[in-house]
């Protein structure tokens, strides 16, 4: 069967169970809008926190460092300046202009048996990390939820169209062609949903930026979505969709 005919048969599938696929598309659209927005906020929170705390720290953040006496270059690579060491105690200090990625830097230091800390800031940084982790966990939970909706949708569709799939088999349509028809249906339906989620996430972040500029008097913004992030997101979602669909198609056919 040529791809044009497969596409036409796929198009016909949108006539069936309209309520179900519309509801699922809308749900996916909302969930992915939220996931993208939360992901942007989570990864941009360092900058926002940093900028918010900047007025009380004279334009830079001074951290105490331990274990870097012989490895000043690592600190410089991480963006630290004004590096000084106490020749008697081994501890030192270094300053940095932004808190962007500060927890990654702290984690790298701990993994190397070193330390970067600030007794005054660490409480705030702890709150920031908690917020970031909560948002990332929430994104993950929402992703699992969206995936479950997708799985249910596949099972529902294949169950409702069982007679049609059997008919195609009787008429000599191979399983691969049948699979491609139904996969195209799910792919197009889902792609519309999360393609629309991208501009919605972009607009949401713009609103949040406007709020933090006005109300929190913070000059930095959450980063908007880059093309590479969007492409990576699409590739990831597509890979998950394909794996999930193939698994349930195989299970349904074995039954």
């Amino acid at each position: 069967m040529n791809w044009n005919d497969r596409f036409n048969l796929m198009k016909n599938e949108f006539r069936y169970e309209k309520k179900e696929w519309i509801v699922v598309s809308v749900l996916h659209f909302f969930i992915y809008s939220v996931i993208l927005s939360l992901a942007i906020i989570s990864f941009g929170m360092d900058d926002i926190f940093g900028e918010y705390l900047l007025p009380v720290s004279d334009g830079k953040y001074v951290f105490e460092v331990r274990g870097y006496e012989d490895d000043k270059a690592s600190l410089e690579r991480m963006g630290f300046t004004d590096i000084e060491f106490d020749k008697y105690h081994g501890d030192g200090s270094a300053s940095i202009k932004t808190l962007d990625g500060i927890w990654i830097k702290k984690l790298i230091a701990v993994c190397e048996g070193k330390d970067i800390w600030n007794a005054e800031f660490d409480d705030y940084l702890g709150v920031m990390l908690f917020c970031q982790m909560s948002l990332i966990v929430l994104c993950f939970v929402l992703f699992i939820f969206a995936n479950n909706i997708f799985i249910n949708s596949i099972i529902f569709k294949l169950m409702r169209r069982k007679n049609y799939i059997n008919m195609l088999s009787f008429l000599g349509c191979s399983k691969n062609v049948q699979q491609s028809i139904f996969f195209m249906f799910f792919k197009i339906r889902n792609t519309v949903a999360y393609t629309l989620a991208v501009p919605v996430a972009y607009i949401s972040v713009k609103f949040i930026n406007r709020y933090i500029h006005k109300s929190m008097k913070v000059n930095v913004s959450f980063n908007s979505l880059h093309v590479t992030h969007v492409v990576a997101f699409f590739i990831f979602i597509s890979a998950v969709e394909m794996i999930v669909f193939k698994k349930h198609w195989r299970q349904t056919n074995e039954e």
Partner: peptide, 13 residues
């Protein structure tokens, strides 16, 4: 094979 059998069903039956 599966594909040839599907072709048999399509064209002969």
């Amino acid at each position: 094979g599966d594909k040839e059998l599907a072709d048999y069903r399509c064209n002969k039956i």
